[in-house]
Design a protein around this nucleic acid. Structure first.
Lengths: 192, 192, 192, 192
DNA sequence: CATGAATGAGGTTTCATTCAT
DNA sequence: AATGAATGAAACCTCATTCAT
């Protein structure tokens, strides 16, 4: 057990280091040696846990994406009105962005650069299903605008990423009040 | 004259090559040698026009940002209603994203990674002034929600970036109809 | 007993794996980890049986060389005519090359690259004594050309190595008929 | 001109260093850094002249093989008896082995290990044509044994490689007298 | 002004070997 | 005796930058 635990610890330390360093410098500007140093292992050790750098980042991505989805949809229950359901999910996403901002930054980088390879990206997309189903229901009930999910996502969910990145850059302070304003804007943009 | 002209041509070729290569591979995965080759120039020549790689990218960024702003605000006239003004600006932004998507991709990369250094990024921000003024007027007139400009931007402007990137990835086709839907969502999200 | 037996099995598995992998990739392109894997053993275990990689290869070489000599000279009896004696030995060598080609390839690699260290190489040379004695007798009897043993070896024995390697590369098919032709060439080259 | 000459010099220095180092240690035990040092260039410079290590060795092989063939067949004239023609070629090969033994060692290494890739090996084989034609004529005239060219080569040409390698190892001294003895053995082995 | 050649520094990855268990 | 995990050293290779021409 001790040995296994140590291995898991090392793997986690590597994932953590990857997230932090990639957040600050991007994929290509983050050398394996730095990741190793931050995780307190030898560079060679990384290759016991991951095939290569790309694999390390892919696995980190999928792990973080899973954390994100677990967090976002844990509190969600299908038996609510569309608006309530959306509010619950949206607020969880906002909370994740605030509380786990390292994770949020990382996912953002992944979504905006050719850092993650196609298969892992595809794998990461399926996680949104519950939200898509909710929107589907909303369209059928005439509560949500009958437009592409991409547009709904672009206007109601993605702006949070922009705001969180602005906050990271120190340009913007995301307060409680802002969250309510943001939610209103999100809902207004997609509601019929 | 011939000499000077030639120089400008070379500089432009370098900027163009930078945009294309960075769009496809990102900043750190784009070697100077490739930029030089694509611009039909020796690597050493780059350093006659730019201090170093960072400077090349910064200058490219500012140049593209200028093209963007020039295009976006050229048709704008302050003497319109807030809604009309916003629509004009928004549609120009959408048009730029569609017609000059190479430029749009590049600006997006710049906004989402630690590729551009802080000074250049700061420099690039001031360009939005006319839109900010319009929003200010809108807030005073009670037409626009009285919230931070960052939130207004996040919900009404930034989603276009998300959609254009989704289109680049081939996930989404941005049609004429979509543009109208998107504008509606944008306006709904910020109007009072 | 069980313990000792097990050890010998492991050692043999390691020698076998070494031969196969070195045959296919050469000494320096064969990592210890692969040898261990093929022998179903931990890399660390190798070092219980051998001092280091060089020692592993040296020991493998001497072991194979012994198998070779045992096979080649087993049927040999000094009380024959020189020609008959030579034919017996030659045919055994040819048979070894055909039937135990893995061993033959390995010996060949060892003879042609700086893979084996000098002491082991020296050790491996003495095995040929019976053949050298036969040639000595042949020279005294005026049956064999009075030339250096190196020349006799180069022309009557070594060509088999070349042919067997050509066969391994798929360039040449070594049939029964070829063996007789080859023997004739061998004998013609050294007989007076 | 000066520049071009310098480039050619550098390339030649690299080929020379490759030959010497590979001769002494083998392909996989010869790091690029050592080759660079011996050629008095930076490791990075190697990659201006060769794509990678494999390419460096392949090109070296082909270059040396060409030197070999040029030397061997330069004095050869088709209008001779088979025996005389063979003697001329054989003696030239022997001379090459003696005088350019670095080249000869190198070719030998190449022929006996998986160092050279298949395409280059194939490329290197065609060089022997004149000898094969001579043998063909010899068979038709009933002067040469009617056996596979591989066997003829194995017995009449390849032994020289063995002897030259033995000499390199210091086991055997290849004198003028030896050459005549060796030629006789070679001819006896293939003549009818 | 323009360049091709050159390189030092540093990137990712491999591997022979060791060590705690 | 046996091992899986770990690693320092070194392998191949790339690239931003410089310099002689």
């Amino acid at each position: 057990m001790a040995k296994l635990q140590k291995s898991i610890d090392k793997r986690n330390a590597l994932l953590k280091a990857t997230i932090e360093l990639v957040n600050n410098s991007g994929f290509h500007a983050t050398p394996m040696s730095k990741i190793a140093k931050m995780a307190n292992v030898s560079p060679a050790t990384i290759y016991l846990y991951f095939e290569n750098k790309q694999d390390l980042v892919n696995q980190t991505y999928l792990e973080v994406k899973t954390k994100y989805t677990d967090f976002v949809f844990k509190a969600y229950d299908e038996n609510t009105s569309v608006k309530t359901g959306f509010e619950i999910i949206w607020k969880r996403i906002a909370e994740f962005n605030s509380n786990e901002c390292e994770y949020a930054f990382f996912l953002n980088q992944c979504n905006n650069t050719p850092m993650i390879d196609e298969p892992s990206r595809k794998e990461g997309i399926k996680y949104l299903q519950p939200l898509l189903h909710l929107w589907q229901r909303g369209k059928e009930e005439g509560v949500i605008k009958p437009v592409s999910d991409y547009i709904l996502y672009a206007y109601s969910i993605n702006p949070l990423s922009f705001l969180i990145m602005a906050q990271k850059r120190g340009e913007f302070q995301f307060t409680k009040a802002h969250i309510d304003e943001a939610f209103l804007a999100a809902w207004d943009s997609i509601k019929l």
